[in-house]
Design a protein around this nucleic acid. Sequence first.
RNA 1: GGGCCUGUAGCUCAGUCGGUUAGAGCACUGUGCUGAUAACGCAGGGGUCACUGGUUCGAGUCCAGUCAGGCCCA
Length: 1049
Amino acid sequence: MFRPVSPQVNLPKVEEQALALWRKHDIFRKTEETRRGGPEFVFYEGPPTANGKPGVHHVLARAFKDIFLRYRVMRGYHIIRRGGWDTHGLPVEIEVEKKLGFTSKRQIEAFGVAEFNKLCRQSVFEYIQDWENLTERIAYWVDLENAYVTYHNEYIESVWWILKRFWEDGLIYRGHKVVTYCPRCGTPLADHEVAQGYRETEDPSVYVRLPLKDEPDTALLVWTTTPWTLPANVAVAAHPDVTYVKVRHPLPEGEHEYLIVAQPLLEQVFRDEADKIEVVAEFPGKALKGKRYQPLFTFVPPEKPAHFVVLADFVTTEDGTGLVHMAPAFGADDMEMARKYDLPIINTVKPDGTIVEAVRPWAGMFFKDADPLIIEDLQKRGLMFRAETYTHTYPFCWRCGTPLLYYARPTWYIRTTAKKDRLVALNEQINWVPAHIKHGRFGNWLENNIDWALGRERYWGTPLPVWQCQECGHQHAVGSVAELSEMAGRDLGGLDLHRPYVDEVTLTCPQCGGTMKRVPELIDVWFDSGAMQVAQWHYPFENQEILKTQHPADYVCEAVDQTRGWFYSLHAISTLLFDKPAFKNVVCLGLILDENGYKMSKSRGNIVDPWDVINTHGADALRWYLFTAGPPGESKRFSLNLVGETVRRFSLTLWNVYAFFVTYANLDGWRPRPGEQPAYSELDRWLRSELHALVRDVTAAYEAYDALNATRPVERFVERLSNWYLRRSRRRFWKSEADEDKHAAYSTLYEALVTVAKLIAPAMPFMAEELYQNLVRSVDEGAAESVHLADWPTVDEAAIDEKLNQEMSLVLKLVSLGHAARNKAGIKVRQPLREAAFAVGRAGEQDVVPRHADLLTEELNVKQVRVLSGQGEAVSYSLKPLPKQLGQKYKGLFPKVRQAILALDAEEAAAKLLAGQPIQVEVEGQTYAILPDEVEVRMEAHSGLTVASEGAYLAALDTEITPELRQEGLARDFVRWVQDARKKAGLELSDRIRLFYQAPEEVAAAVEAFREYVMAEVLAVEMTAGAPPEDAFVTEASGGKVTLGLLKA
RNA sequence: GGGCCUGUAGCUCAGUCGGUUAGAGCACUGUGCUGAUAACGCAGGGGUCACUGGUUCGAGUCCAGUCAGGCCCA
């Protein structure tokens, strides 16, 4: 016996049962153990930061990781699925700062770095329970017990080892660069961090006069969106080759002034005043070089010559005035100019974002808050030409939302540019899904590689292991705890490698014997996560053997926003360290959008709780939806309803086929008979052909990391299994004798269900387990304990019959036309008809009708089917030249060939073509033979016939209902009423009955005429015309005209 | 401003090497069927294949440009 299955199902409950089974039998651990010795498949888990609850987008990534790993296990691969946690960095610090109510680094230092970091360490695991619960519930199998943790000393030590290698290769340097800097967090941000924070924002847009020293009443007009940088101005840049003009601009009260701007921007600058101005001079930008102007502010006196015009190619005439204000402390281009022209660097903003003391009126203000006051000041002094606002995108801190500052600071870099060629070359070895990322987003990023800004001036992170001598300035990178101990002259094995403890370790300078102290910086957290490929194994201090088999990864998968995050940090570190790619295959997932098409993110607060979906529809449906919703790389909108559709369309369809099978197999006491070749019917052969073609295609999709084509075709198959195979096979299961045909039907359906269970196991692990346990384990003690420990199904190539598959699609089309014709005629399917005749447009397809006559007659409830013969039938013919075949053959001649074919006598040509013979056409004096498969023959019914047609296909019904047919129809109606009554009476499927009926004369006559048929259909051992006995279940049918009485026999 | 992606029915998506009548599911309406089904069959309404131009005998498909959206970078 199979465990009985109800068609009514609570899928989340079924899933809980599977979870319990996995837990009880430790199935996950066994997926690793039982495959030991198999080929190795290497997977890297991109460590999430567990500083918030996981959302649907996390489920997406975890589902896509899991699906290919489960598939590989079933293929016999051994996989170490080690989890990992990203635990360092600003995200963690900011959570703690929020709790403590801190807003600046000074508060952290006053609070104490040791205590602060202790809180950071604790907060990292605050949400870990949520992650673990969700991970288990969505069936993402990953080893969280032995997960790597980026804050562990061993992990940090490995990171140090990498950094020392880079140091020794001369890849780490301290440079002065204008960085994107968060004044609130007090640290520069890496480019990939900056990238996450671009927002549309409104800024001032000001046009300012800079009066020339040597030309009275004349001023340079500059444009800026950052008035706060004006006190740091040291020069103005003009493009050497752009044409500039000096214009006379009228002022109120009859006065006027002269302004200099770029000629192409003239109208844009003066707008409605354009007709009032007068160009008095025109000259190239070069001519402006060296012209001195009066500084706007004099708070900070420059220590070098300043306030004159310089020339630069980066000046554009897209917007502004063509004259660019230069503040080297606050812009990369500006800093470049400062170097070139030896300009002074005036820094008017402190690292905490406040204005320096020297700028007295606004000292201590947050830099951006000074904008309106500076504008006001310039207006009062008549230096403001125009002040308005301007909407553009500007970077904000991705964590705290503070506007970022372009700010000149010393910091540490990794010279990735030195290995740019290798970064690009090794990318060629990586298989990207979707493919365009390889040379698109990722490839372009590598081509335009800039050095990796490594340093972070923060507290909770991996310390940069560089010590500097206080005496001679010598720098040394430490690559292990042992080295640290040795240089410190004491055993530091128990030292917490975090700040502040590591900062307290002083070393002896190998050059001068002086005292060395660690530099204050931490490293970028992206370096932490990118280092997991070696640091998760505490390599090279341990596990040197393991690393040989665990690098590079066969597969990684994250959302597309990781292209410049984790994917890059993995790739860059592996390239610099091993000159090898870090991963061979990578799936980049699109973003999950909310119902309104917005990105789901914590900062937006529009995260859909995955638990809602799981509790309503189950994790399988959620997973299946994510796999089938569209190409993985594209963003998808997400809602509860879309997942619900998956349940109705696929899960329940499959479930009901399963429930049907179990119900009837139990009634018949059926068991699979392994090794025996059943007497398959044509329909069985077709289903097996489709099934094995499915196995073939799905397998290929899994091999190609194509989740979409690993899942969607299964839906299509199950749909056909349910709505064609089962529908047409039902009677085979119902019939009472247990013959070979019945066995073949069971065998076929069983094979289909078991195979589907395995095919969906990677994607829908719970449903697959339920089917497998009940269908396989219950009858085969020796079978693998779980579907996830079972072997992947093999393709029986011999079972695949592509011709049969095509024929069956044609049968389905003809059936559909037959139903349509019935619909037109208004004759219900239960009423048998004498004949259906079909037209098929191509010679080769004609024999489909006789070959599948059984299916067609049963489905359409007709006594016979045939092909329309043509001559003498009530149809006319037309020819449709097929452009695909003829166009490719005749190219430019096609239109004329087409005309020639259409000009032929259709009757005559059709007869030849349907007989498989070519026809001749003449075009431009040449004769061409047109082959039968180059023309479609269409038949149209003359009026009066009940037909339905589509393209070359047509179904015609003989709608005459003879008395015999009518009687048979009534008998079938009667059967239907009795079945309904059985159901109402609450009888079991297999219960035999004694049947009593009272019906009008015509019905009674039909029932008696088909007495044997009726009794067999309704499982009646006795059928009596007359009043039912007292104790019978009595009901009425046919609007009260028929009374039925049932007694369980 | 640059790079990448997307634009097909009310919604979610297919659409092969370019082939002349562009499909499916959901939703809606009608109708039929049902002792597996939360179903299913059939029919109907619903399309400027974002737009413009080009290549071609033929363009949803290829090319160029434009527009809109998304992501990434300036």
